[in-house]
Amino acid sequence: MTAALSIRNLRKTYGNGFEALKGISLEVQQGDFFALLGPNGAGKSTTLGIVSSLVNKSSGDVEVFGHSLDTAHAQAKMCLGVVPQEFNFNQFEKVMDIVTTQAGYYGIPPRLARERAEYYLKKLGLWDKRNQVSRMLSGGMKRRLMIARALVHEPRVLILDEPTAGVDIELRRSMWAFLQEINRAGTTIILTTHYLEEAESLCRNIAIIDHGRIVKDTSVKALLQQLNTETFILDINPPQAALPALNGYQARLEDDHTLVVDVEKTQGLSRLFSELSSQRIEVQSMRNKANRLEELFVSLVDKNLTDEKNA
């Protein structure tokens, strides 16, 4: 099966000599929900910029559904929808005009463009605002407008550069639901994000980029399996003034009724509960720490930094 996105040995050196990409290679399969993660300045936006034709590459190859950006750029671009990080629509145009104009750029006839604009604006809760000038929209609405605009030509791959940056929790959740819906319908989704929780809950595959190199390219599941320890937060009763003795477990008291315990894969939880029970400590509720991916991300990026220094 042809990959939705194939990047081979991509390099980018900016005019000031800064080498943003040092030969990255990456494949995103059709129908995937893929996250590209990395710290600020790692090369995420440069990579997506080159794929979106907003940045000139120095060398390397990019193919979208088998269409080379060099030799079949129109076909490649037809397959792509792009939602950038910054608002980049005409602030003086009406919402409806922005979406139908973008459809026109893809050669979609006006009647079909209006039908599709209506569908996506309704889907994204912007239909009531269709005749409003775009600068009057709230930040969340502007972000949804960019998604509607990117989808109006019904691309096979949707690229989102930090789609939920600065968006409140409720809206973020509704955007996640919408993205999952279009992914289920067959659209391949590639996103960058700083919210690792977002990548963990949405994406099946993940690549971590740092200093212009891919330091990890795997499935979220496989990545999480690399975690040797998992951290659990336990609400305990009665309150404890001092840390209970838990043989073999790394633990700490957050406060007198919150116990944080690092559990290694080989240890399991049964013995932990037995030990607590023997000390007449009752576990009222338990949850695992949500930022598991964050821990891995930090360790991978730190390792890459150390490797670069040693090289």
């Binding site: 034709s53 129109a74 671009k77 792009v82 910054e86 608002f87 980049n88 005409n90 750029y105 605009r149």
Partner: peptide
């Protein structure tokens, strides 16, 4: 203005020659 407001990107991502 298209450059300044960055909506030139709407054209650049599209397949228009």
């Amino acid at each position: 203005g298209t450059k300044f407001q960055r909506h030139v990107e709407e054209l650049l991502v599209s397949p228009i020659p």
